[in-house]
Design a binder for these strands. Sequence first.
DNA 1: TAATTCTGGTCAAGCGCTTGACCAGCCGTG
DNA 2: CACGGCTGGTCAAGCGCTTGACCAGAATTA
Lengths: 341, 341
Amino acid sequence: MATMRDVAQRAGVSISTVSFVVNDTKPVAPATRARIEAAMIELGYRRNAFARALASSRSSIVAIAFPALEHRLGATAMSIVTSASVAAAERGFNLVMWPVSNDASQLEDYIGSGLVDGLLLMEVQQKDPRVALVEERGLPYLLIGRTEDSSQQDYVDMDFERTVTDAMDHLTGLGHREIALVVGSLGDNTLPGYGPIVRTEAAYRRRVASLGLRDHVVACEQTPVAGRDAARRILDEVPSTTAVIVLNDDAASGVVRGMERAGRAVPDDVSVFSVATSPDVVALADPTLSALMAPGREMGRRAVDGLLDRLENPTVPRTQVLVPCELALAGSTGPAPAPNR
Amino acid sequence: MATMRDVAQRAGVSISTVSFVVNDTKPVAPATRARIEAAMIELGYRRNAFARALASSRSSIVAIAFPALEHRLGATAMSIVTSASVAAAERGFNLVMWPVSNDASQLEDYIGSGLVDGLLLMEVQQKDPRVALVEERGLPYLLIGRTEDSSQQDYVDMDFERTVTDAMDHLTGLGHREIALVVGSLGDNTLPGYGPIVRTEAAYRRRVASLGLRDHVVACEQTPVAGRDAARRILDEVPSTTAVIVLNDDAASGVVRGMERAGRAVPDDVSVFSVATSPDVVALADPTLSALMAPGREMGRRAVDGLLDRLENPTVPRTQVLVPCELALAGSTGPAPAPNR
DNA sequence: TAATTCTGGTCAAGCGCTTGACCAGCCGTG
DNA sequence: CACGGCTGGTCAAGCGCTTGACCAGAATTA
């Protein structure tokens, strides 16, 4: 591989000058610049990432940390990661994957290696020990998700509040008054204090209260079978239910099935609305689910942009972005049935 | 951050000796070693990734390249990536994501930066221009997937041959004799000459022929609706069909639905068997699909191990691994119905 | 006892690049 | 014309680590 020295020699200038051209860090006379650029092309020069990083102590690498074991990451996570890496590439950065189990010292090792300029934290929990650690090390970071109190941090998260509100609006607009919420249970498989569930449930209760409606929250495991049971439970507890919001990808289709088995047609008797849903989940259900889809792509991109903005200028205002879900209306929601009278 | 010099000073030895201890590259007297290790702990020493890479021209970083735009990567891809990064971490390596669009020069830029020791290529196509490029650059690599002729390359791929065979065995064991295959269409959304489809179809035809059965391949788009149509088409063309193998995640549930709408009960009249399926797809369908599930985790791990083995020792025998799908029997397959007579 | 081989360690030259300090001309200005 | 200020460049000291060359002293061998 050609080095800067080779280029400098060929262009008849010093190494420094080449560096100034490569990084555009000092003015260089047009003629000289042209000679250098020509030399670079002829030699196929590519700057060496390590030498650069070592000398400048900036690596142009950011990491994305995700829980290695606890959690099975799905298509939404993948779209976050892929879009993040694309966004990073556009700004000349590399994205490295850091699988971090609960073990804090592992994250310390990673950080200590000095490999990255900044860190994205995925699957952030309400109380997340990783955050304190990163903060303490002074490494710039941005959360994908939020902690209990993220008012002082950079973050990009799904807008659960808005998602629930949108869902409620959609359903009340169709005349529904008895609207239940199905969430994933915070069982062994899930991270403790998983923000999405906590936030959605809170937002739901607020919204329901402000509309003077009854709240009805049911938790179930993340499987279609559990969704079926949840549907039954909902009808047992509040038979007049005409709409269900489901924050539980894997259970959504089961909820539909459960309703149908209980003799309620979807969407004629009961509407089912899946929120914060993975794109593939929507595509898979049949009839296709009405849904608010998780904006993974958008989140990944915004996260990287926020972090890189901070790296370039530490005094930049905080990135605190809530990305709304994308509405995809389909066959599982419809007007509330006429009251039974 | 403490450097080697700090450690050396504190332990009263030269920098070299510290290096030998850190890398275990030369024998060091136990007492000295202990002093150095103590100093490292006291100072919280962490070796600097860049200095190391620059001096040794080994970076302990590998990249995984994936198509940036053409293809929407799902849960299986995510499990490959996460397990790959875990496996890499276990061997002291970092995994970086390289979104590579068709543009070859982009990959060249990446490679030229000298950032990585080796490269994993995801979503490999039958004729894949990336392969030639990487080969030419002399960068060690391993394919996740295969090209048309991968006999001279390291690869880890799904075992389509075996998957089809297993599926056929399962179905013929249940008495089925009229078995159709549904594959994804090679439309705009798909990579040209997408290996999985090509290989599965070929293997299916061979197997069917060797069993003296009739072959019946139907291609359809990757949506449940298309799956429904495919089911109808199958019955139109061969009404006596009693089993369908589906290599098309997103269409599988639609095939089931289509059969039911055509008046065939699943699994009583027709069995539907989804192969090379994403775990979440199986979980989502209701009734749960019988399936051979894509072994993403296993593939990611094997891929990294194969690549790192090669890095450590270039003369190691080729890694050419075909990972079988994992069987998950559920409610969509059953015994063939008694002949209609 | 002298010659040889280990053992455990140091020396110092880089790896390829960045960047503050410095410098030679040239310009315009008083 | 002398001086200050540009402009466009060069110099050289690192960044933190690896590694081949070298070396002192102890152990082994003849």
